[in-house]
Write a protein that binds this DNA or RNA. Structure first.
Length: 341
RNA sequence: GCCGAGGUAGCUCAGUUGGCAGAGCACAGCCCUGAAAAGGCUGGUGUCGACAGUUCGAUUCUGUCCCUCGGCA
């Protein structure tokens, strides 16, 4: 049975808990979800893959403590999970929760997924394997510069924005042009992340760099001690090759290189930790630019319960503000999150 | 103690036939609209071990000393 009033539910509230890897989101999230009698909607591009559990730091059944976790285990490692797929699945879960009068509570660190959930995804056509394969072959045979030259020709605005070496994005822009018959930059211009389908509260969990990096290393040591190498080996044995996007994720990539004899164990650990630190840094760069995040900085001494309380208070205040809104405010994005930004 | 090799960026090292020192990694900053844990861009002043000599000029050549690592004692 849900906890949202009809009035609040109509305003389509959406609460997001985000932060860099190893900031402690998952643990806090379970407690927060419990307090509001709701579920956890994961926003994590890697936890979407089945059979990739340890390496993606999926909470165990025990850790979930009876709180349903959604949007994980949606795809097999040889499928290409992506932003569009995620968004569609997430919107379906959110609609279901509203029907049950429950608060949608999104938790994760994949910045793009969160952004497209909160501000929409431009209506460009989804990726087409055939077109993509053809473009990749062109790039391989003719070189990146020739690929980029094509983009300069058909979509100079996108080309100006992208570096010739950024093959993945150059490829995508060419793909869209071919499928949609118009440049990606034109589609972006119309969209510009202007959708606001929800009244959103964004809560960010931050930690100082040093303690965060230490937590990252500790988690990796734990993962390796609890079967990370075996999990990777088992994926490879089942025929999921290293070229797959899923196997290019943190940890799996480094362990696979080690299993292939490309480096020794110690070097693998070093790279795993280093690349994860770099990733956390990139996440923070992304989140810093994201408007409206209300940051909670967690210091080392704080208990998880303390953090939970702070998050709960923010959410209660947010829900109260929605309760008090006139119906004419419907559809407007709340600015609660920007007050202390 | 003797012989050999070496002391240059946080680390590993390159280099300057004498002219304001440069790579990789680490680290830092940034970009991102269906691959996003992916992909991409940018950032190098450090008593060139110390002191003295030669020189217009020494991190580079010479001498002495200090330190590190091998080998022999």
């Amino acid at each position: 049975m849900g906890t949202l009033s009809a009035a609040v539910c109509e305003r389509r509230p959406l609460v997001v808990l985000l932060g860099p890897t190893a900031s402690g989101k998952s643990r806090v999230a379970v407690q927060v979800a419990k307090r509001f009698g709701t579920e956890v909607l994961t926003a994590d591009s890697r936890q979407a893959y089945r059979g990739m559990d340890l390496g993606t730091d999926k909470p165990t059944m025990e850790e979930r403590r009876g709180v349903p976790h959604r949007l994980i285990d949606l795809a097999d490692p040889d499928q290409t999970f992506n932003t569009g797929w995620y968004r569609q699945a997430a919107l379906a879960e959110i609609a279901r929760l509203y029907a049950e009068r429950q608060l949608p509570f999104v938790v994760g660190g994949t910045g793009l997924y969160i952004r497209t959930l909160v501000r929409g995804l431009c209506p460009a056509p989804q990726s087409d394997p055939l077109v993509r394969a053809e473009l990749m072959r062109f790039a391989r045979e003719q070189g990146r510069d020739r690929l980029y030259a094509q983009l300069v020709e058909i979509d100079p605005d996108s080309a100006a924005r992208l570096h010739p070496n950024d093959e993945a994005k150059v490829l995508r822009a060419l793909e869209v042009h071919r499928l949609a018959g118009q440049p990606l930059s034109a589609i972006h211009r119309l969209h510009a992340f202007q959708d606001a389908p929800f009244s959103t509260l964004l809560i960010g969990l931050s930690r100082l760099k040093e303690p965060l990096y230490r937590r990252i290393e500790e988690r990796i040591d734990w993962q390796l001690a609890h079967g990370m190498v075996e999990e990777t080996r088992s994926l490879l044995d089942r025929g999921y090759g290293r070229h797959l996007g899923a196997l290019k994720g943190l940890g799996y990539r480094q362990v696979a290189a080690y299993l292939a004899g490309e480096c020794d164990y110690e070097e693998m650990v070093r790279r795993f930790k280093r690349d994860t630190r770099h990733f956390a840094k990139r996440q923070m760069t992304w989140f810093r630019k994201e408007p409206g995040i209300q940051w909670i900085s967690v210091d080392e001494g704080e208990s998880p319960e303390g953090t939970v309380d702070r998050v709960v208070r923010l959410i209660e205040r947010f829900l109260d503000s929605l309760e008090g809104m006139m119906s004419s405010d419907l559809g407007q994005q709340t600015t609660l999150g920007e007050e202390s930004a």
